[in-house]
Design a protein around this nucleic acid. Structure first.
Lengths: 234, 234
DNA sequence: GGGTGTTTTCGCCTGATAGTCGATAACTAG
DNA sequence: CTAGTTATCGACTATCAGGCGAAAACACCC
């Protein structure tokens, strides 16, 4: 038999691996994360991210997609990207488990049916969370807020069609501060992130001029000319 | 004995886990990556990233640090950050191995002694690489180039002290295009990324005005006002 | 149908910053 | 001292973010 050499991956130590998803969405004008309440020890009663193990036939992305299916309709998740892998020895008291986090985004207009132990929690008013899940949440929020500025990632938070006012409120909730509709429109249109349609929204109860309906140009993540600094010469 | 419940991490499938490092540095005016030549199958003769398994007492970062020590003096690595975790089923034909990539940066003035099977390879002229290592390399280069624009990550590529001309060439090599010294100076100083010292560099062979010696203000990664767009109101 | 209130949208202004270019400073070599 | 070389600074331009107010376009009420 060919002795497995040292340095052979077959001989690398193995660890249970789990995937966790930070699913974010704007609900009632606030940025929220999907959490479920643990019924068992450890960390019984605390709130945890959805996730679980990885089957031998699955890649990480497929694994998290599968686990999410038990919480929300996966078709509702408009964007999914990997965050980081955490490896603290005692992050789970039961065993050494490596965990890879994912960021998932759900448009504000879809209302997935949730299991009874699962709830949307506002980011700025989180309950006690289990394990190291809080780190994943903070990383996810940071990633989202950064990418709102230099990618078209907003498409995954917004409905297919929307008015500028709706988009302003959506971005405001996601970013955590108010912003002006004028500048938002100009920036996003110049970058070809959003574009106006022919349609007009019907005014609300109190009247007002009908708003132009906008859509996102692309519905896959694209990076818009990243930074206005240290650019190549023309 | 308490039966381990389903959903218990103890029962999650386990996989050998490896860490890989994309160590980048500017050598002879070109951005290079550290690779070693495989002497054994599979992928014999191809060039691979340094790395290896993860011991039970190590975190991922400690593991890659340990493996790097066999290739370069770890003290030479001025910056180290996690990239992503790859999980393709057959990324290694011998076993299903999960791999977490790291980006490492070595200042251009340090000359680590390398093992005989290890070499610096220019990014724009890579040899055939082993496994999926090319994906890690591309991700690392992309990450570096992006962060050069909105962080102070350049400190990890540059010597402790340098002139603007040296920095311009360094950034040019790392970014892949030429840029002007005037603007580079203004941008980096206004952002408090670099600052002038009292010292002057002695002119070269052909004379010329002595250049001011600059240093990086901080030697840890800091993000400089990320983006000039969608900022909070003042 | 005209006035009033509300909301959206457009144009104009301001300020900050990236990027370029040319003039000047400060040295070496002959 | 002069010519050549390199670095630095100031001035100018272009672009873009951000803000404000006027005008547009509706609903509602009389």
């Amino acid at each position: 038999m060919p002795a497995a050499k040292k340095g052979d991956p077959v001989n690398f130590p193995s660890y249970p691996h789990e995937v966790l998803a930070v699913v974010l969405s704007v609900r009632n004008g606030r940025l929220c994360v999907l959490l479920w309440k643990r019924a068992r020890s450890p960390h019984r009663g605390r709130w945890a991210l959805p996730g679980g193990g990885v089957e031998p036939v699955e890649r990480l992305r497929e694994a998290i997609t599968g686990h999410l299916a038990t919480k929300v309709d996966v078709r509702d998740v408009a964007h999914l990207e990997q965050l980081a892998t955490h490896s603290a020895i005692d992050r789970d008291p039961r065993a050494r488990v490596l965990a890879t986090g994912y960021l998932g985004l759900v448009p504000s207009d879809v209302r997935p049916e949730l299991p009874s132990d699962t709830l949307w929690h506002p980011i700025d008013d989180l309950p006690r969370t289990a394990f190291d899940h809080r780190y994943f949440i903070d990383a996810a929020v940071g990633r989202l807020r950064a990418k709102l500025s230099y990618t078209n990632i907003g498409f995954a938070l917004a409905p297919l069609e929307f008015t500028i006012a709706e988009l302003r409120d959506l971005f405001g909730a996601a970013l955590g501060y108010e912003l002006g509709a004028t500048n938002l429109t100009r920036v996003l249109t110049r970058r070809h992130v959003i574009e106006p349609t022919e349609r007009r929204a019907s005014p609300g109860q109190s009247g007002g001029r009908p708003a132009t309906v906008y859509t996102f140009v692309a519905r896959e993540l694209t990076v818009t000319d990243p930074f206005a600094v240290l650019r190549p010469p023309r």
